[in-house]
Nucleic acid binder design. Sequence first.
DNA 1: CGGCTTTGACCAGCGC
DNA 2: GCGCTGGTCAAAGCCG
Length: 331
Amino acid sequence: MPKSAHQIRTSSLKFPLPLLYILSQPHLGLPKILPFLLFKLPLMAADSSWLDSVDTSLDLNLQPLRFSGDAPKERNYMEVERKVSVKEETGALMEELKRVNAENKKLTEMLSVVCENYNTLRGHLMEQMNKSGEKEICCSSKKRKSESSESSSTDEDSFKEPKQETINKSAKITTVQVKIGASDSNLVVKDGYQWRKYGQKVTRDNPCPRAYFKCSFAPTCPVKKKVQRSVEDQSVLVATYEGEHNHPQASQIEPTSARSVSIAPAPLTAAPRSLSAPPKPTTEAKTISNPRFDSPEVQKFLVEQMASSLTKDPNFTAALAAAISGKIFQH
DNA sequence: CGGCTTTGACCAGCGC
DNA sequence: GCGCTGGTCAAAGCCG
């Protein structure tokens, strides 16, 4: 059987060939290609015309077989046999193509769901950001008095919600409360930045020690952080941020080497955050920064987050791998 | 071996 | 001026 009879005329596919090429590369793991997929496929899911326009017809323009013998009867017999064989093969291929199309449609639906979830998540983040921006208070100018007013305000509110923050706009002071486990002994709040602990002190009004951190990502970054357990509820960590970062978030620039993983608090003007793997698992926190959701960094972050989630879903990876990388190029 | 944490010493602000 | 307190420094130790 000539090979061309099995070939799908990929030259007429509107399905992006670079995507097919990527999917066909065994050395590219799904986690690597998923960000690309998630950038490309929402557009394809929104406009599914590419799927309908996929040319699934077969190139049946077979070259006539050449026979060495000249006997007309034998040639006729072989031609009939060949036609039957071609018909059978065509039927099988059509069924295969139907199945592949069904799988493609299923994947398109899954992608639509993914896009929907993406938009929902994004909207939720925007909502949270707007909410946090409203929680701004003022405090006095003096150093110690500002701290006392800060703690009093947070103590009043701290038990209404698991996490809460107050922001001093003028002094760039932000207080964040994070609920942690009572057994969690380390005073670490994950916020997407890299911190160096430079001191620890037991304060008069709180038996729990207060830890002092400096932003260690950039030598010139003036941001400091104080972390201490709440007096009234020791399962609550109170983190106080002072100053503003003069650099992008560490995990944004070097995702593989950054130290914090979760969406977390930061001063008002802090850059948008991203995900990465932390060396020491700690607690979660919520963002109060002002990320620009349309910026490429945030888009990349969100896509990486989605890719990370999707690659953990064996059903998704299996379906994607089987339907696209394995079948379309099968001969 | 480099980076981070720990921890005692030191410094500065504030109230008396 | 003195004592108290919060904040910072820096040497030593720890860890990957």
